[in-house]
């Protein structure tokens, strides 16, 4: 009983419960056929959402008004640049990866400068930078029909015992980020700033350095996602990041991170990413039309946030 109580107080539990419920509903509908395959597919796709979700989580945790809207265009730019640099050659893989990370870092610096030097609110700053980034990707876009190096394609689609290798790597990374969030000075600084920026500064926290690191982290993770996604889907495309705009924000919120800042939750991101993918799969299995699918997705997200966010509204 007490175990149940402690569990029900964990904000991430709801995203996992939702994930299991939806998977069960799909499995019952199909009579259990292919439900293991659904999990494998969900793990693959959810990993990409979760990668950008982690970055978005740190940004949102730094307080109200902080959000990174440049994630989709960073994914597109990073994918395009990496594919062009590598030109399908395994030998160029490290160079491509470095180019991709470089893109991410550059975007992070740009976003931070807009926010800090020009004092533009983050939502506008990252929105406008996303136009600049996407334009760069388009101008650079001759790389779009290039296939990824075979090694990268293999790595991003490889499986062991039905589990995507990428998801396993990500699990280790997520554990590390969870430690960063809760047990490092940087993580504590993020949470302190999210609660009260003025109090954080007066408590000796390096506010500006923390904000810079946070926007840089988000952009670098988006770039990483773009690199891997291009490998996974056989090449980069300009709109491959599109679904990650709302997706990254949704998994953060469903996962139990407070939009008011100062409270973040990493396990919740994992559950929420799975939940989001399974939700769409379930509605597809039920044969719902595109319209119904969108309406249902919206309603279910609202429902989950209401249930999971109830505890937050009281405090």
């Amino acid at each position: 009983m007490t175990a149940f109580k402690t569990l029900s107080e964990k904000p991430w539990i709801w995203s996992f419960l939702g994930m299991i419920a939806i998977w069960a509903a799909t499995a019952i509908y199909t009579g259990g056929k292919g439900s293991a395959d659904v999990i494998t597919a969900a793990l693959s796709f959810a990993t990409f959402t979760a990668i950008v979700g982690v970055g978005q989580m740190f940004v949102i945790a730094t307080g109200p008004g902080n959000v990174d809207l440049s994630i989709p265009s960073t994914i597109a730019l990073s994918g395009a640049v990496a594919m062009k640099v590598m030109d399908g050659s395994n030998a160029m893989l490290p160079v491509g990866a470095a180019a991709s990370l470089g893109c991410g870092l550059a975007v992070g610096v740009l976003n931070y400068l807009l926010i800090r030097v020009l004092r533009i609110p983050p939502i506008i700053a990252t929105l406008s930078s996303s136009f600049l980034i996407l334009s760069t990707a388009i101008a650079y876009g001759r790389g779009l029909k290039i296939k990824p190096p075979p090694l990268l394609a293999e790595f991003t689609t490889a499986q062991v015992w039905g589990l995507p290798v990428l998801a396993l790597f990500f699990a280790v990374f997520a554990f590390g980020m969870s430690v960063v969030l809760n047990r490092t000075i940087y993580g504590r600084s993020v949470l302190a700033i999210g609660q009260n920026m003025r109090a954080a500064r007066l408590a000796g926290i390096k506010v500006e350095r923390t904000r810079f690191l946070t926007y840089a982290l988000s952009a670098v993770l988006a770039a990483t996602c773009g690199f891997l996604l291009a490998g996974f889907s056989g090449g980069a495309s300009l709109n491959m990041g599109q679904e990650y705009l709302l997706g990254s924000i949704a998994v953060v919120v469903i996962g139990g991170t407070s939009v008011a800042g100062g409270k973040a939750n990493l396990p919740g991101i994992l559950g929420a990413s799975m939940f989001m993918f399974l939700l769409v799969t379930m509605l597809n299995t039920f044969g719902a039309s595109a319209g119904v699918r969108l309406v249902m997705t919206g309603l279910i997200i609202v429902a989950v946030i209401t249930i999971a966010g109830g505890e937050d509204a009281q405090s």
Binding site: L191, R198, A199, A200, L202, G262, K263
Partner: peptide, 9 residues
């Protein structure tokens, strides 16, 4: 409340 406490901690 403005300059001191971190209310979630």
């Amino acid at each position: 409340q403005t300059d001191g406490v971190f209310h979630r901690w």
